[in-house]
Write a protein that binds this DNA or RNA. Sequence first.
DNA 1: AAAATCTCCAACCGCCGGAGA
DNA 2: ATCTCCGGCGGTTGGAGATTT
Length: 253
Amino acid sequence: MGRSPCCEKAHTNKGAWTKEEDDRLIAYIRAHGEGCWRSLPKSAGLLRCGKSCRLRWINYLRPDLKRGNFTDEEDELIIKLHSLLGNKWSLIAARLPGRTDNEIKNYWNTHIRRKLLSRGIDPATHRSVNEPPLETTISFTDVKEEKVKIKDEKIPVQERSPDLNLELRISPPYQDHDESDPFKTEAKISPCFFCNLGLQNTKDCSCSHSGIITNGTSNKNINPGYDFLGLKITGSVDYISSEMKNQDMCMKL
DNA sequence: AAAATCTCCAACCGCCGGAGA
DNA sequence: ATCTCCGGCGGTTGGAGATTT
């Protein structure tokens, strides 16, 4: 029982958008806002699939898009965020106002990868290409063997998590280097992520340099009271937290 | 000048997770 | 608990334009 198509494909246009289509979409969204994408094409008089409309709006027509070349600062920020988040383009884009995930993804694939390679850095791992491959097997010897076996059978080492660089430390807390509990965190004055990137006092810097960002969500297990990306408290934080939990779990395995 | 190759990026595709029935 | 719908995401592709041969 497959899913129904997202729209009636027989009657939809594909490929590049025309000026008229753009105008219609812009006019409709200006008048009605971003509502139900599925029904939008019909309401707006567009022969497009809702997904296509959404993509066109988000990646190209939105008025707050910056467009134009990436600055060196943006380059470096993308590299740093990628080293922490991997190919989570939407999360990376969330930290670059006016940039879209698609744009950043394209830019990464066309420019930054090359840039890193020319520096002798493997863009997938952010490690020197001369270094031996990172052993992601943290020593599974003294843990539940069976569980580990299952994991290893399913996913070859290379594929297991190519973007997960376990050498990287995500959060300031680790500066205190408490080996016994790498996530023992808070309490210390925790600058925001941008401070840790050396971007203090930029518009992205969300900490007041006098205290901790209060995390009002329920991330009780990890870094309570600390939003390691300096993100506003949104659902994505929970996502990140859960990812971190997963990573933590993997490390513990 | 023409053909071949490369680069870039807009757009598509398929999958996933959350929400609601 | 299960199913369907929908929005969102990341990977990939197609083709236009640029560059090289």
